[in-house]
Amino acid sequence: MEEYAREPCPWRIVDDCGGAFTMGAIGGALFNAIKGFRNAPRGMTHRMTGSLTAIKARGPIVGGNFAVWGGLFSTIDCSLIKMRGKEDPWNAIISGATTGGILAARSGPGAMLGSAIIGGVLLAMIEGVGIMFTRITSEQFKPLTPEEQMQMMQQDPNFMGFNPQGDPNLQSA
């Protein structure tokens, strides 16, 4: 459903970057709040201080890492849309793998390959779940055959929204 509400392509990069930053910053703040709380020395004051320090130090960095991921992913996605002329799950999978690879570029070819595989598999899973949900929701709107319709109407006379036998307007017509 989100797909239809998204911005058109060049602006999508900025939007995705911001969304990823928001997600990372809030999630990172929560995560680091707990982590700082646990790692701080004994005493409630120390723990609260440690929690706050960890949020301030690490929260934005997690957000920034997410933003880089989201922005790069979206950039490659948009480029693929333009190049291939279509929007399909392969775009997301390819851009996920490419993004993973590019962001691990400074760690050597082995790390690049590993990150690329992880990125591609991750995005494939996300796309797979999305397709699954679409399948499940589209099941509700499947058109019925006339036989099925008759069957449903025998079970529930008001199935079609009205009852042809019971409707006085229809009977007089």
Partner: peptide, 11 residues
């Protein structure tokens, strides 16, 4: 506009 503004600021 929030996400766009945040993303724009980050970039």
């Amino acid at each position: 506009y929030a996400f766009g503004a945040i993303g724009g600021s980050v970039i």
